[in-house]
């Protein structure tokens, strides 16, 4: 009986080890695939000029990225069903005085079609999770704008760009809630 129990234990441990190896293998394959794709895909990088795309604001106005030249802009892409995006709005609302003081324009855009899962309208999302903050301009990004600024397969639900007055990308971040301190440091350091 003891040897049978030991045998069963050894078999279980073997299966657990195989499962762990399989998970690592999948992780490495996905990572290698991402690295390979990064060479081929056109991801935006710091120092590039932010590509110009037209988008619709929540008040119905059609505008474009070039219309924000002359001001430092925080361009933030979200989806309205994502918890980290909600948290980002909450954190941004608590730090809004900093952005107002530095005269940073904040544009929060819902990614095209909410990436396939329709959440609430972006203006309502910001209102609920951003403490009714009216400093942020909200709108909806087109399909081409979404994939230009959030290139697959390295899709992020919560990705933001700090763009200087001449239209150059100064910083790209993922997850505004966690990255806001870094963002503020960059703004301060660049005397924006």
């Amino acid at each position: 009986m003891t040897s049978a129990v030991n045998q069963i234990m050894k078999t279980k441990i073997k299966f657990i080890l195989y499962a762990i190896i399989a998970i690592f293998a999948i992780f490495i394959i996905v990572k290698l695939f991402l690295i390979e794709n990064a060479k081929n895909a056109k991801y935006l990088s710091v120092g590039e000029i932010a590509p110009n795309y037209a988008f619709q604001l929540s008040n119905g106005t059609i505008t474009s990225i070039y219309n924000y030249r002359g001001k430092t802009t925080l361009l933030w892409f979200v989806v309205t069903w994502c918890s980290s995006c909600a948290e980002g709005n909450s954190v941004l609302a608590n730090n809004i005085a900093f952005f107002e003081k530095h005269n940073i324009k904040i544009i929060e855009l819902e990614q095209y079609d909410d990436l396939g899962q329709n959440g609430m309208p972006i203006s309502k999302f910001v209102s609920i999770y951003g403490n009714n903050n009216t400093y942020v301009q909200t709108g909806i990004a087109s399909y081409n704008m979404t994939i230009a600024y959030n290139t697959p397969p390295n899709f992020q639900l919560d990705i933001y760009y700090l763009i200087n007055p001449s239209g150059k990308i100064l910083y790209i971040g993922e997850g505004l809630a966690e990255g806001i301190s870094t963002l503020e440091n960059i703004i301060t350091k660049n005397k924006l």
């Binding site: 394959i29 996905v30 695939f33 991402l34 794709n37 994502c82 918890s83 980290s84 995006c85 697959p152 397969p153 390295n154 899709f155 992020q156 639900l157 919560d158």
Partner: peptide
């Protein structure tokens, strides 16, 4: 699995 690039990467793969 949410709010990361895991699922889109697997779908692309």
């Amino acid at each position: 699995l949410c709010c990361t690039s895991v699922i889109p990467s697997i779908l692309a793969l």
